[in-house]
Design a binder for these strands. Structure first.
Lengths: 157, 157
DNA sequence: GATTAGTTGAGACAAAATCTCAACCGTAAT
DNA sequence: ATTACGGTTGAGATTTTGTCTCAACTAATC
């Protein structure tokens, strides 16, 4: 059963930040204010922010964190597996705070990206690229097309 | 049955160029030498070239085609549906001359992208994002992991 | 509190992509 | 074949996106 994923709630956010701190300790990476603020910002911004959008977020602006640090923090978050990177044609790199297996509906008109779950296509159903000596660590599906709003606009024309 | 896709052969290349010319005429887009050379270059370069690699290709260099024109031509090829754009995290935009439904095995170590066919996941099996008012036009799967060569290197360490 | 190794900020730098505009060229009508 | 027109091209400036450098700073550990 396919479904659109709900936004990340406060409880989940707390858990994710704690998880981040744990992974930092495990990896021997110092936990700085800057990194903490960047994680919070990403989790607060529902829906795939770009690095620049994170940089422009109120939290990050208020703390006067530099652009370089935002890029570096985001990269370390990816390294630690706290967030993932997503990239769709014609768009810049975006960060995705969602970790559970999910896929992206990308609108070719307006660029909007919607998270969907489709348990029928997950890691468990994609075991065997080992035929090619390839070890699959992640599977993402891009469904590209036109969203409801843009279809309505097209019809009017 | 999953399989790695074979390179585009000469016969297919001819057909694809003819197809491109037909679509240009239909869309009322003038057929220039530059565009013709760019299509040929892309079809000759097996495996997902970047705009810059196309710009650097022998055909394009020989014809002294400008960088701007290469970018513009590639974009018009995408518009006409002659090639597609692909983008994987941590990498620049790449162009994909393959039109048949297929997916990408992306190596997280070396960045190599391999085309694979998996008929069990195609348009025909993905009908129903219409629940969300979304009209699916294309479906791409990214399988990210580590390729055989990089796994061997990792083991040695 | 001292030590150490990793982090930060500011701005320079690099890479990727787009824009500008005058000159040019394909196309189709004549 | 000629002409008129609109789209295309090239060169280089510009913008956008991301990385690098290095001195000053700070988290973590003892």
């Amino acid at each position: 059963m396919k479904r659109i994923l709900a936004p990340i709630n406060a409880e989940t956010k707390r858990r994710r930040i704690a998880e981040f701190e744990r992974r930092c300790r495990e990896a021997g990476i110092p936990m700085t204010d800057q990194r903490r603020i960047v994680v919070e910002a990403v989790l607060d911004m529902h829906c795939h922010p770009t690095a620049d959008q994170v940089y422009a977020s109120s939290q990050v602006r208020r703390a006067r964190i530099s652009r370089a640090t935002v890029y570096r923090s985001l990269e370390s978050l990816v390294m630690l597996g706290v967030i993932t990177k997503a990239c769709h044609p014609g768009d810049v790199v975006r960060y995705d705070a969602r970790l559970e297996p999910h896929h992206h509906l990308v609108c070719l008109e307006c660029g909007e990206v919607v998270d969907i779950a489709d348990p029928s296509i997950t890691m468990t159903r994609l075991p065997d690229m080992s035929v090619f000596g390839f070890e699959v660590r992640d599977c993402r599906m891009q469904l590209r097309g036109v969203c409801r709003r843009c279809r309505r606009k097209e019809k009017k024309r």
